[in-house]
Design a binder for these strands. Sequence first.
DNA 1: TTGCTCCTCACGTCACGTGAGGTGGC
DNA 2: TTGCTCCTCACGTCACGTGAGGTGGC
Lengths: 290, 290
Amino acid sequence: MFKVGDFAKIGQVSVKTLHHYDEIGLLKPIRVDTSSGYRYYVLEQLPQLNRILVLKDLGFPLEQIATFLAEPLAIAELRGMLRLRQAELKHLVQEEQARLARVEAHLQQIEKEGSVPIYDIVVKSVAPQIIVSGREIIPSTEEVNSRCEALGIKVYQLIERMGIKITGPMYTIYHDVEAYTGQDQDIDIEMGVSVDSSTQDVHFPADSGITVRELPVVEMAACLIHTGAYEGLWQAYASMLTWIERNGYQRCGSFRFIYLRTPPDSRDPVTEVQFPVEKQSSQPYKDEME
Amino acid sequence: MFKVGDFAKIGQVSVKTLHHYDEIGLLKPIRVDTSSGYRYYVLEQLPQLNRILVLKDLGFPLEQIATFLAEPLAIAELRGMLRLRQAELKHLVQEEQARLARVEAHLQQIEKEGSVPIYDIVVKSVAPQIIVSGREIIPSTEEVNSRCEALGIKVYQLIERMGIKITGPMYTIYHDVEAYTGQDQDIDIEMGVSVDSSTQDVHFPADSGITVRELPVVEMAACLIHTGAYEGLWQAYASMLTWIERNGYQRCGSFRFIYLRTPPDSRDPVTEVQFPVEKQSSQPYKDEME
DNA sequence: TTGCTCCTCACGTCACGTGAGGTGGC
DNA sequence: TTGCTCCTCACGTCACGTGAGGTGGC
């Protein structure tokens, strides 16, 4: 019989670990002295301890290990658990590799450009929305600003006249999915605003060019917040493209500018830029799940 | 100004997260209503929140992020932190890949052999020891058992006669590092026992063939516990070799059999098998630290 | 008045580590 | 008697999630 200290030494674990396993009933000492509370272990428990350590090392939680030890555990079951664990670990490894890639993308930014990134770009999902919008093809870039503004006002006025409830800010959707350089012609844009879901059944005059539709969910969108004049948005746009490439994503679908704060508010305008993205199809190593 | 719920929505975090960031002083609302306790945020805090989310996503703890936001943070410092993070992540990815490999080794065992592993093999370090031992070359395998026993008794008797304190069990060290098959001839073995460190200065009679020496630490040893007759040790030996190969290790140095329980104890003998190992030199991908 | 949002505790998570304060065996 | 080992609380870890129980604004 061994006291905790000795058993801990041959088992290469801490005394506190044995205390803990006793407490949760995972490995109880064979005898506990009633007066002193001393725990006593026997050699036969060493293989049990090793089994625990092996399973723990494979990444199973102690609670699950306890069930493993309790029942005899059919071989098929064990295989199933291991397969599950294998899938989880593959996923985890991929996640950490992606994280590592993001860290390296930051380093690249700092070391190549010698500058700290201006924007903090996060990937998030964008909920589906009911929007009221008007869509137009604008012949040249010079007109974009004025035409967008006019279209926006038109949408607002119609909404107001019809007593519809606005639930979010206005935004521009750029439907030119191919790299939009700001130098293109015939720019396909849509100005819209999120509204209450009850608006779905409302019909707008056909000649107004304004319609209601549902904007589907975007699973992943790379997003940044731009503060300041709208001209700066094109730098944000450029940062976004670089970021998407460096972080192993690719664009999918039309991007949006969301006007979180606009004139007449006298403070700096605030705009969110959202680019739908997906993971680059050419993965690194170890993607297949067998 | 936004209430928590609204700010949480545009920032794509939970209300509880904002509460938490407030509590730890990471991102405090611009205003807290004194009577209701309501938190109010402004759009200017959205970029701050995004910065937090980006840094969190790179794997920095919130406490460290707080220091990043507090000081302006020199670019060189940020670079240093990122490099550190990069190294940590590389290490973590490797660890998880190794864990995955272990899970897959288990699966292989189950699927190829159709059996659940008999032994639970753990990798641990073995502390340095002062040992009293005798070494011999045994000409043929048949004699190993008897010669080892005789040598062991000789060591014990000498120790007893000199009044030296024993601090551990006896063990056999097999110095034939090359794969020992149990069929070899001229087997180089050593029988020893750990003793009190004060024994270091003791001199044994030269003609006894018994000496004191220090056994250096073993950083990593694959270990298993064998219970039962000594003949079974060769199966344990075989399991060990398979395991070492499947788990991406290789042997280095002489292995040991440690006699944790021996006759005359009437219960089953218990023996620990320890194989010093090192990581296989041919690594997978991504090992260099740049 | 009814919902909806907001608030503040307080406990849980996971596998122990780290004292604090006290006792038993050589 | 002095060390060494053992014991039992009890709190901390990390970033929140999850109720419980209650209040404020439309």
